[in-house]
Write a protein that binds this DNA or RNA. Structure first.
Lengths: 126, 126, 126, 126
DNA sequence: GTGGTCTAGACCACG
DNA sequence: GTGGTCTAGACCACT
């Protein structure tokens, strides 16, 4: 799987890594059990610091997307669940985004179509 | 309209204000032409810094949700549009969020239902 | 509240800080709403690095013992709960410790008495 | 007796081996005089390093749970005692664990019941 | 080789 | 002033 880091983005690097790995899982490019590049490897590949990579990996571990295998390093797992807390935070997170789109004149259908398009990419991939 | 600020959220206060005003417009609680509380007023109501409120208002002005009226202060307007740039950024913003939900085992329908629920609140309100 | 760091201990410094703050809460020395010393303050007080302190604070935040207030910094909260996951990890954690004590000839009563002594210190303090 | 190694645990493998052997003694599955599998044997059974197994065995020997017999290899013994040093370290070890449980709202009785449940498994087994 | 911990020091965002 | 992010580089534990 290929990561792409935008250094000029206002999204922190560790967050870009985190997001892209989750997207990689959603798109089926990363399967349960897959080993990720080592912290140092990824850091040197992108010319970033190993702590930055570690932060991304650790968050993913906390959230249940990764495990640390004592020999293999970080490995894709699937412990993350959509519990009530998550659903709540999900709503809270997309609420302002959808409100913004709606205020700009997009219709409910247009917005839902975009969501659906994105979700279709994930279908049967996880 | 009533604002609610969470000082212990990881979302900056100016962003909370910005989001809630947009949500207020989406929900029909703020109509075109409505005057917002003055920067001083809002800042003192919540015990926050003037700069914080001004930053929120200025962003909303830049995005076309507010206008500055010489006497009335900040006034709700509706110049914000969903141009290609916005659509692009919208997709980029929700992509990782939807991926996360999908990876946690939510189905396409479940996710879309949540989006729809939110959007229904806005219906016929703008 | 006073922290004591043992630099020669094989327990990582961030873990010592984490443990002592939890103990401080258990002993009633830290109450909900109390503000902790700032990361930089604590780091300089003990001559340790601010990242070390931050790591301790961040773990406590993740576990629900602290919140970050945008003006006050890290603040004691009480969101940590003893859910099934915690109970499970608790059992897994003390199992080998109790087994060790038992193998060394301590009786059930002796071991339980020590546990009780410790717990009595916490009574009516949280 | 059967060992179970979790490669994705944050507990080092040598520590898992050490703990499980002590637990085996506490549970009566390992009696004084029993011979443990050879280092080579155990290492190859689990696909782990010889050093890892040896480290676990050596610690157990240092603590008085094992003896090295010239022909039989590592043999269970019962020289480990609960001296003051041990009691002290025991208290220090469980103190933060019990504090954590208490802070999460568990009562003294609930916590003691869990300890007792564990200890009951060991009863009349050593 | 892997990750885990810690340091020293920088710049930025926020309020 | 607060915390958040990132860097560069060190040493250690584990396997």
């Amino acid at each position: 799987m290929l990561l792409r880091i935008e250094f000029e983005s206002d999204i922190p690097i560790y967050m870009q890594i985190k997001n892209q790995i989750i997207e990689g899982i959603a798109l089926g490019m990363l399967k349960e059990g897959d080993e990720l590049p080592s912290i140092r490897q990824l850091a040197s590949d992108f010319g970033i610091n190993l702590h930055t990579v570690k932060k991304a990996y650790d968050i993913l571990k906390d959230e249940g997307f990764l495990n640390v295998h004592r020999r293999k390093g970080y490995v894709v797992t699937k412990n993350a669940t959509a519990d009530d807390n998550f659903i709540e935070s999900l709503k809270k997170e997309i609420h302002p985004i959808l409100a913004n789109a709606y205020c700009r004149g997009m219709t409910q259908d247009e917005i839902l179509r975009i969501c659906k398009e994105i979700l279709e990419q994930f279908k049967n991939k996880v």
